[in-house]
Write a protein that binds this DNA or RNA. Sequence first.
DNA 1: TCTGGGGCTTCCCATGGTGGGAAGGTCAAG
DNA 2: CTTGACCTTCCCACCATGGGAAGCCCCAGA
Lengths: 140, 140
Amino acid sequence: MTIGEAAAASGVSAKMIRYYEEIGLLPAAARTAGGYRVYGERDAHALRFIRRARDLGFPVERIAELLALWRDRTRASADVRKVATGHIATLRARIVELQGMVRTLEHLAAHCHGDARPDCPILDDLAEGPRDTVRRDHHG
Amino acid sequence: MTIGEAAAASGVSAKMIRYYEEIGLLPAAARTAGGYRVYGERDAHALRFIRRARDLGFPVERIAELLALWRDRTRASADVRKVATGHIATLRARIVELQGMVRTLEHLAAHCHGDARPDCPILDDLAEGPRDTVRRDHHG
DNA sequence: TCTGGGGCTTCCCATGGTGGGAAGGTCAAG
DNA sequence: CTTGACCTTCCCACCATGGGAAGCCCCAGA
């Protein structure tokens, strides 16, 4: 398989495959006499694994851990779950952050006339900072 | 005010102040004879504005729009609200994405023994792809 | 066997914000 | 005038991805 075929078979772009090899997420691929990278089914499988892990938002660093666990048949499922739950916590924290922003913005937008007049609590808030009730408590 | 004082007064690092100037978010600061940037209260005010907008997750591009509206006393509040609601939509979309990941991961983690045994549905899912009920539908 | 063109190679650049650090100049207090 | 804190610019890094250029490889078709 060429890198293009591996890309098509895995959903990971050729660019990214080379990048993953460069940063050591993947072992260096075998090469043809002419220098072309060659991939097998096993490689394509690993690439699909990576692709799915990325779709679930795992950073490359965690994916490396997951790949190592995957390849280690003596792994403990507890170790895998630890990686997963840690990632869940990270995602949840991010969600909470974003929800806080949304809450504040909704509050501000709700109090903005949204017409031709220039006065606007959104700008007032950005300019003068937190003054009233519902504020950036989520931030601390 | 030196850049360090402006940074302390606004919560924006000196590095970032220079960066914002470089990308045109801020006008070039006045300079002393020796080349030091000089800031006034007005500048500090704008920096605090930027800081708060960033805390609300606005990308620099949107902040530029907000700053322009802020400085334009003939603005329509509707324009401000449009920027805000657009950003809210972006944030919400991101939240939905993250929630989808969390949902999938929770489902997988719940079915993982989490003990010393090696078999693990989390790895199975990453390796073999979506098979059962609760899947990455959120993704499409 | 030659040729064409599509795919491959490496290398550099950009994104978006942020930080770190080096080399050198400035400023204000003493 | 010295000293040391602060400023200047410039480069590098992160994370993950894409774009593009210059040049080489490979195979199908003539």
